[in-house]
Amino acid sequence: MSRIRQPRQVLWIAYLAAAATGTHMLETGLPGFGPWIKPGLANTFSLIALFRLGYAAAVVVTVVRILVSSLVLGTLFSPTFMMSFAGGSGALLMMALLLPLMDRSQFTMNGEVCSQALNKWLLGPVGVSLLASIAHIVMQLVVAWLLLIGHSGIFFALPWFLFGSWLTGIINGLLAYMILKNLPTGC
């Protein structure tokens, strides 16, 4: 795992956290989806932080995003906040599990390892995004079941939630890849 050493890296964490917070708040105001269904574009920035700066940066970006956006939106420590937090921690847990399977070599900030293409048998942004988004929705459902709803009927919605997270996971992964490819890496 790469350490955060330079001020430049700290600045990048701040940029990504700010972008993620803004996206999260814009997404909350999206019409037509309702509070339970969001495309999850804010998580793209956690993914970018993970591939560009490492796991610690992804944790910081996610936690700052959830805390600051709920503070601004006035939902701190409300059920909405708990749902966000559960989802974020589920995704971070899945990212931690996938760390040994990840290929970051194209995307690291200072070009510690350079390569032209993704390693065929390791996970790129799309795979990590997909699995993390599924972990996100499963963790949210479990926490909603334990804390809020308390009725196992909530799991009847699981297939729809899973299919939605499959789709948005792939789309967000592609977006993260496109952004990562266009950032300077020092290679």
């Binding site: 399977l101 290929d103 065929k120 996970l123 795979g127 997909l130 699995l131 499959w166 496109m178």
Partner: peptide, 13 residues
């Protein structure tokens, strides 16, 4: 944008 393992993950999921 995707490696073999990515595509395998998408399919398996």
């Amino acid at each position: 944008a995707t490696s073999y393992l990515d595509r395998l993950t998408i399919l398996l999921c």
